[in-house]
Structure formats: structure tokens, C-alpha cells
């Protein structure tokens, strides 16, 4: 009675195939102007003609470099601050209102300030991506550490654990599932922000690559391929993070 996973995958593939084929046919059939919206095969062929694989790889690596640096800074700071604010009452009392005030400000709105503080170079991009990762992670870490089952804390206390030992051996692992969810959300957000940051002020990276194509009235094909490439990168890295966190918490926490 229970349908297998293979049939699910086949259905999914069928769905993708229908959309791609439909798109291809619409363009080939003349219903859509290929200059405005090229078909998948046309877009790919044209992009391959205009850009060398090495150029694309270079832009991709730049984007990944920025996102990894900014994300790591944000995730580490978010974890430390969220845990500290949730575990130590005094720290929480001061930090929470500040975080709550700043959290609703979208990371992109910090771009002007980032430029004022860090100039137009890499640090301002790191900073924006940092913010994108920081807020989801800090929230998740705070929620995770404040919702640790009190009975676990008591149990650990009966074995003589307290202070930092209690935090490291009980608080952190208990908060890990929430924290990892936040990290995954943070990564996704960082990704979306990176492209925006590169659209506005950059001379390399995938965001720059597609915006530059538009500004120089180049080919829509390159833009379409670029957008797709960014989406696929996002998807693959998200799966990798999900798989890694599942490896760590999957057996004891479940899905």
C-alpha cells in the first residue's frame, strides 16, 4: 500500500521534464521571444559560447568564498551570543532587547552602513552575509538553550555537574537540534543576501556576473544560466548541511 520512494522520484522527474519540455516548445514554437526568454538548450548553448568555464568557476569561487567567511563569522557569533544570552540571566537581560530591536531590520538594509564602516571592499560583504547568518542562528541558539528540559539539568546536577561543565555537557547538546535548524536557515538567508550584495557593489562573483550582463545589455541567456547556477549551488549546499546535521543528531533526535 505504501508507495515506494522510486515512484516519488519518477513523478518528480516527470514534473521537471514537463516544465522544461514545455518551456523549450513554447520558445521553439515562437510563442516567446528567445531574446527575452531563451529556451533551456538555447540559453545553455549561448552562455557556453559567451563565457568560458574558467570565468564562471572564478565567479562561483568568489561567491562561495564570501559566503563561507561571512556565514562562519555569523554562525559562530550567533551561537556564542545566543547561548550566553539564554544561559546567563544577566547577559540575556541586556542583549535580548538589543537583538530584538535589530532583528527585524533586513540584512540588506545594512548595506549603506556596511559601506560607511567598511568601505566598498570585501569586509562590507562579509558583514552583510554575517548579519544574514547571525540573526537566525542567534535566535535558534537562544530558543534552544532556554527550552532545555529542566529535568535534564537536574539529572546532571545530581551527578555533580555544574557551571561551564553543565553548559558544555548538557546545555549545548540539548540545544543542538534547534541550533542546527537555525544554522540551516542562516545559510539559506546568507545565500540570498550574498547575491544581492554582489548586485549592488562588486566587480566579481555570480551576482556581479549576471548584473553586469544586464548593464552591458549582454545576453539574457547568461542571466538565466547564472540564476539557475546560483539556485543549484544553494540547493546542493543546503542538502549537504542537512545531511551533515542529520548525521550528527539523526540517530538520537530523529527527524
Amino acid at each position: 500500500m505504501k508507495p515506494g520512494r522510486t515512484s516519488d522520484i519518477l513523478l518528480g522527474l516527470a514534473g521537471v521534464a514537463i516544465v522544461v519540455a514545455g518551456w523549450e516548445l513554447l520558445v521553439r514554437g515562437g510563442a516567446v521571444d528567445p531574446k527575452l526568454f531563451p529556451s533551456p538548450t538555447m540559453a545553455f548553448a549561448e552562455a557556453a559560447e559567451r563565457l568560458s568555464a574558467a570565468t564562471v568557476a572564478q565567479h562561483t569561487l568568489w561567491s562561495l568564498y564570501r559566503i563561507v567567511v561571512g556565514f562562519l563569522l555569523g554562525a559562530v557569533a550567533g551561537t556564542v551570543i545566543g547561548i550566553a544570552a539564554g544561559w546567563y540571566r544577566g547577559i540575556g537581560l541586556v542583549l535580548r532587547p538589543i537583538i530584538e530591536l535589530l532583528r527585524p531590520i533586513p540584512p540588506l538594509a545594512w548595506i549603506p552602513l556596511a559601506i560607511i564602516w567598511f568601505g566598498l571592499g570585501e569586509p562590507s560583504k562579509f558583514f552583510i552575509i554575517f548579519l544574514g547568518a547571525f540573526f537566525p542562528v542567534v535566535t535558534a541558539a537562544y530558543v534552544g538553550i532556554t527550552s532545555v528540559d529542566p529535568v535534564l539539568i537536574r539529572a546532571a546536577q545530581t551527578f555533580g555537574l555544574r557551571g561551564p561543565g553543565l553548559l558544555l555537557r548538557v546545555g549545548l547538546p540539548a540545544a543542538a537540534p534547534d541550533l542546527l535548524t537555525g544554522i540551516r536557515i542562516g545559510w539559506g538567508l546568507a545565500f540570498g543576501i550574498l547575491v544581492a550584495a554582489e548586485l549592488i557593489a562588486a566587480d566579481r562573483g555570480l551576482g556581479f556576473m549576471i548584473m553586469n550582463e544586464r548593464n552591458t545589455t549582454g545576453s539574457v541567456a547568461v542571466i538565466v544560466v547564472g540564476i539557475t547556477l546560483i539556485g543549484i549551488l544553494n540547493l546542493i549546499t543546503d542538502w549537504a548541511i542537512a545531511a551533515a546535521s542529520q548525521r550528527y543528531i539523526g540517530r538520537w533526535h530523529g527527524r
Partner: peptide
Amino acid sequence: GPGQGQGVVFQQHALFPWL
């Protein structure tokens, strides 16, 4: 305080789920 030779068993098992 705790840890002076009192072992405690709670109503909910209170096992550490990650161990």
C-alpha cells in the same frame, strides 16, 4: 547540594537523549 551521595531517578527517565 546535589552530588553528595544521593542518586536520583526521576519520573520522566531524564536520560540524555544524545548519549
